[in-house]
Amino acid sequence: MEETVNVSTQEKKRVSPQLENLKNVWRKLRSNYLAMAGGILIIFFIITSFAGPWIVQNDPLAPNVADRLQGPSAEYWFGTDHHGRDIFARIIHGMSITLYIGFTSVFIGMIFGVFFGVISGYYGKKIDAVIMRVMDVLLAFPGILLALGIVAVLGGSINNVIIAISIFSIPVFARIVRGSTLGVRQLEYIDAVRALGASDTRIIFLHILPNIMSPIIVQATLRIATAVLTAAGLSFLGLGAQPPDPEWGAMLAAGRDYMWEYPHITLFPGLAIVAVVLAFNLFGDGVRDALDPKLKT
């Protein structure tokens, strides 16, 4: 009656496919040096944002006119700005602002995007048409312009920047999630649990969401880079963090008048932005390569 059971598989320890999958992803990610470099940088940035302000001695906000516009030195590693503030201290303190904006805005955008995307893909028809047309409108704006408009309406502050970036992240997530939901929804096992009488909530949370996590994770990682860049852009335009907050975009803007004679004023905040964006992009690309089964050879 029973088909033959291989003895070796019988004795092998039961591993869930999720765990097996995770191990696989990790193996691939580890062999991708660029992605690992990105990942290590991200961890380093996160640690810095928490521990940095305790370690750095100089006050990032206190002006010190006697030491203004000094080049990099042993005391001021990255030099000082036009108020004599330590640029290194400001960059370290600004790290937490940057990461806070990046993570929070993407997280909020992801929650709403996944919600709309799943609803759209699962229920289809009119709801789908309405949601996706709204998303199309949001997507039609260039991201920074949309964020600019939102911040212009709400007023310039870090929290408003987060709201703005969240809103323009929503359609990106919604689209991806909708597509994946459409793919999973038509699988027979969804029909099977439906035939058993499962409710829509049960199907969505237990059977659809776990199966569409990969594209969401990839998108979230890559979106953080965009969010950081947009936040810096908005602050540069004076619409985000307000002086004297040590936000990197705002530092660039303030240093603009002195950048020809004292390039270090803008160089270091600029490099900091590049480093964070690059780290998330590298890591995100690596995660995508590791998670995307279509690239498996």
């Binding site: 999720q18 699988l187 027979e188 096992y189 029909d191 099977a192 649990v193 776990p210 199966n211």
Partner: peptide, 8 residues
């Protein structure tokens, strides 16, 4: 296709 690959 008719059984969820993630469930025992």
């Amino acid at each position: 296709a008719s059984i969820n690959p993630r469930q025992t």
